[in-house]
C-alpha cells in the first residue's frame, strides 16, 4: 500500500464513517482490509483503492467501512468467551491434563495481541494450580505488522481502557511514557507467528484450546469448511474451539459439533463422528 493509497483510505473512511485514523494506524488498515480484498477477489490494497475510486455506495464500499469500524480488538473482548475460559475450559483442562502438565492454546486471529494476552492474564490468575506446568499460547495473524505490535506488548491508554479492568491494568502493565507495557511474565507466555489460515498450519502442532473468533466471517462457505476441518485436525480429541458470535460450524463441517451448554463453543465429533455427528467427545 502506497502513501497515496493510505491517504485516500483515511480521507475516504473519515467522510463515510467519521472514523479518524492517525498516520500510525497504517497497520490497522492493512490488517482489516486485506480480508476484504480476499473476499472480493481483489489482489492488492492498491487495487482495492482503485476500485473504491471508481465506484459509489456498493457492497465493496460497505464492506470496507464495516471492516474498519467494527471488529475492533480489545482486552477481554465480548467478555463471555473469557468468562467461559476462566469458569469452564481452564478448570477442566487443568483436570484433564494433570498427568502431562502441559497446555497449548492457539489464538488464531491474534491481531495486536489483546486476545492472547487476556488469556494469559487468566492463566496467570490460576496461579498455584499451574505451577510447574508448561503453558504455551500461540498467537497467529495474517499481518506481520499487527504481530509486531503484539510482540511489543505496548498499548495506548485508549487501548488499555477498552475491556481491561483497572485492577488487571495495575497488576500486569507498567507505564512507559504515555503507553502501557504488558509484563514480561505474560509476554513470556505468548509467542506470535505470522499465519494465513488459508495456508497449511499442521506445523503449529496440536492444541487443547483454540480461539478463532471473527475471522471466518470473511471467508466464503467452501473456505470456511476447509479451515474448520483443518482446525479440527489441529484440535486435541477432547479439545475446545471458540468461534465468534456470528460464526458456526453448522452446515459447514461434521468434524466439529456445538457444545449445547455453551454458545460459541465447539468440540470434536466422536471418532465415529461421521456416523454419529451429534455425539460429543468427552471434552473439557
Amino acid at each position: 500500500m502506497t502513501e497515496a493509497d493510505f491517504a485516500f483510505l483515511r480521507d475516504y473512511l473519515r467522510k463515510r464513517s467519521g472514523l479518524s485514523l492517525g498516520a500510525e494506524k497504517r497497520y490497522l488498515v492493512e490488517s482489516r482490509l486485506t480480508p476484504v480484498c480476499r473476499r472480493f477477489g481483489i489482489a492488492t490494497l492498491t487495487d482495492l483503492v482503485g476500485a473504491l475510486r471508481l465506484s459509489r455506495e456498493g457492497q465493496l464500499e460497505r464492506a470496507v467501512v464495516e471492516a474498519m469500524t467494527t471488529n475492533e480488538t480489545f482486552f477481554f473482548r465480548d467478555r463471555a468467551p473469557f468468562d467461559l475460559f476462566r469458569d469452564v475450559l481452564l478448570p477442566k483442562a487443568i483436570a484433564a491434563r494433570a498427568a502431562q502438565r502441559r497446555l497449548r492454546i492457539w489464538s488464531a486471529a491474534a491481531s495486536t495481541g489483546q486476545e492472547p494476552y487476556s488469556l494469559a492474564m487468566m492463566i496467570h490468575e490460576a496461579g498455584a494450580q499451574l505451577a510447574g506446568w508448561q503453558v504455551e499460547i500461540v498467537g497467529t495473524d495474517l499481518s506481520t505488522e499487527v504481530l509486531e505490535k503484539a510482540r511489543l506488548g505496548l498499548y495506548s491508554h485508549f487501548e488499555v481502557q477498552r475491556g481491561l479492568p483497572v485492577q488487571l491494568l495495575v497488576k500486569h502493565f507498567t507505564q512507559v511514557g504515555e503507553q502501557w507495557r504488558i509484563s514480561p511474565a505474560l509476554a513470556g507466555m505468548v509467542s506470535f507467528r505470522p499465519l494465513n489460515l488459508l495456508s497449511p498450519f499442521e506445523h503449529l502442532g496440536q492444541f487443547d484450546i483454540i480461539y478463532c473468533r471473527n475471522v471466518l466471517i470473511y471467508f466464503d462457505a467452501p473456505t470456511k469448511t476447509d479451515v474448520l476441518e483443518r482446525i479440527a485436525k489441529a484440535l486435541a480429541p477432547d479439545g475446545a474451539l471458540l468461534l465468534g458470535a456470528a460464526e458456526t460450524v453448522i452446515g459447514l463441517t461434521e468434524a466439529l459439533v456445538p457444545d449445547p451448554q455453551n454458545r460459541g463453543l465447539y468440540r470434536q465429533a466422536t471418532v465415529a463422528g461421521r456416523a454419529a455427528p451429534h455425539r460429543l467427545a468427552a471434552g473439557f
Binding site: 463471555a80 476462566r86 487468566m122 490468575e125 496461579g127 494450580q129 479492568p165 497488576k171
Partner: peptide
C-alpha cells in the same frame, strides 16, 4: 483458583 479481586474485576454482573 483466582484471587477474589481479580474474579470480581472480570466477573459479569
Amino acid at each position: 483458583m483466582m484471587t477474589s479481586s481479580a474474579q470480581n474485576a472480570i466477573k459479569s454482573s
